[in-house]
Design a protein around this nucleic acid. Structure first.
Lengths: 203, 203
DNA sequence: TTGATTTACTAAACAGTGTTCAGTATGTTT
DNA sequence: AAACATACTGAACACTGTTTAGTAAATCAA
């Protein structure tokens, strides 16, 4: 008899329901407003039930972070169509900035908020981030094989490129971009990205 | 009779005491652990009293942010000794990274945490940040006057440089640097900064 | 089918959070 | 001495994450 299998299926169903509710509230009202009680209310279960499916609040956000990386990965798929490595690198930057602009809350969860990282103990690997970074490093390395960035270490250059884009995005997301003059603020990330490409094209 | 003056002095005294306690707890135990009740306990007043001196919790963190910028400004003083603008720009980057490394909590408050920015309404000016950014822009502009960065807009280039350093610092502070290989992680910011300088020196 | 056991869930409690406000006690002024 | 102003408190309100004793239902064994 398949009662065991059914039970397992039901377990995963509620676990998925909890995550769906968390995602809804998170995307509707943001991180601060996503509480265990809010999630419980939405699925009409008691708060305690949530702890039968997730260790704590942080692990719910870790699950949402993984969803974010999944979306992110899908968006990056378009890069497979770009043959030239340097063109692929440029397209990658644009996809990165587009993802951040369209999913600022997911971006925050993936790269800024501490909560989802707390479930990883000190030296445990952060797989999702690692894969994304490795991919960037590999693209930079390919550029190098094609003659670009001859004097640079791929990992170091990847890190600098990532830092620049991440810096632009977080200055925006966390409200620090108002220091930029009015006429440039609206498209400052686009301007910044072009300036970065300009720098990269001269080495 | 100077009762009015004395009262005012006493007001500022307690206001300063609250801020000092907030600073202590913030630097000892971090942002999350700095609560109104913790502050009240430390100065042996009731929680309600704090609201007679500060509008809300955010405005306390805004005051702490200003302190952060004050420290930051003092550290930047050493740049007055650097005559050549490009050397000054390089020294500025090093001071920036040094400040972030030595005062990660202040840095977080100044450039990442949302709370202290909430006291500024939507289009109100963020003076502390504005002054710092303007200073960076002016140094880049001076470089340009000395023949460097000929093809770049000073504000845009200042923004890119700031973004790169800010990105490196926040990836570190918010625990996203573990993707960098072990052998480079320890001094990855130094390596990244050198790579940035390398980029800047080729345009 | 009955009794034992496991599973799934809830309600309540604990300890904490920011914030407000009626009441009090002290200091100042008339 | 009475009136008023100021400074502060303590309790309350509405939240937060998390734990746990208790319950009701489902499953299993005899």
């Amino acid at each position: 008899m398949g009662t065991k299998e059914r039970k397992e299926r039901e377990r995963e169903e509620l676990s998925g329901l909890i995550l769906a509710a968390a995602r809804e509230i998170f995307l509707e009202k943001g991180y601060e407003q996503t509480s265990i009680r809010n999630i419980a209310d939405r699925i009409e279960y008691s708060p305690g039930t949530i702890y039968l499916y997730y260790k704590d609040k942080d692990s719910i956000f870790h699950a949402l972070q993984q969803e974010g990386f999944s979306r992110f990965g899908q968006q990056m798929m378009v890069l497979q169509a770009v043959a030239d490595p340097y063109e692929r690198l440029k397209a990658m930057g644009r996809v990165y900035l587009k993802f951040a602009k369209e999913n600022p809350d997911y971006y925050d969860l993936m790269f800024v908020i501490r909560a989802p990282m707390k479930v990883l103990d000190d030296e445990e690997c952060w797989n999702e981030g690692q894969n994304s970074f490795n991919f960037l490093v590999s693209v930079v390395a390919e550029c190098k094989e094609h003659g670009r960035f001859a004097c640079c270490d791929p990992e170091e250059l990847a890190y600098v490129i990532w830092s620049t884009l991440h810096g632009m995005v977080t200055l925006d997301i966390r409200g620090r971009c108002r220091v930029v003059s009015d006429e440039k603020r609206e498209d400052i990330e686009e301007r910044g990205f072009k300036a970065l490409l300009h720098l990269l094209s001269h080495i």
